[in-house]
Amino acid sequence: MSLGDTTMGELRELMARYPQPRSALLPMLHLVQSVEGSVTAEGIETCAELLGLSTAEVSGVATFYTMYKRRPMGRHHVGVCTNTLCAVMGGDAIFERLKDHLDVGNDETTEDGAVTLEHIECNAACDFAPVLTVNWEFMDNQTPESAVDLVDRLRAGETVHSTRGAEITSWREAERVLAGFEDGRADEGPSAGPASLAGLEIAAERGWQAPPLDTDQGTATAAATESPEAAAAEADTGRAEDETVAEESPADVEGGEAEEQS
């Protein structure tokens, strides 16, 4: 075995995080990919040995999940969502354009080894359609032109930022985070993309809000302090009231009384 002492230590560390070590198998395979560039035969043997499983059992797991790659990957994984909503909004056109531009088919890597292209399923970002991912970071609201520009910059080694995430690293570095090791980039990027804030912004414009929290049942004492103008301000002013109410009558907010009343 030549996965290296550090990696072996990290694989054992993952196993120790769970009540039963086998639960670490998915994270372990993510780590193997991150180190080896794909799920190698050696990686499978190592996982099997550490967990006391047969290599067939581990292979059976590795082949079940689409994120595990049995062929060497490019430096970057570019995913194009072609599930229905994105496909119709333009994902199909983007995927065709990228295959053509990069001269690769689905799940193939460019000659320079920079990009592996794959069409992906709905990535829970439909309100940002059409959506791409780079190393599983969001690239929202794409067009064929923006997608071509994106892959060109990736191939040229330029710095690229996710539209709703961090600076793009590499597929391998991403796999390491997925395995369970932080990379210190959680604080990069915005809280939310524009679409995520659509309802919040409309509510703020119109002065709409949820009924105030942390009041005695039936008395809306915090109502006056909530500012309809801005959602952010609302959260802050609500806070001062919260503390008083919560400290004075911790049991009231639990709602037991209301149950009897109704």
Partner: peptide, 19 residues
């Protein structure tokens, strides 16, 4: 209640809301 009632999404526009 109002037409929109942000509770879960209430703080999403806040500075570094994830911290």
């Amino acid at each position: 209640a109002d037409t929109l009632t942000p509770v879960l999404s209430r703080g999403w526009a806040d500075e570094r809301s994830w911290t």
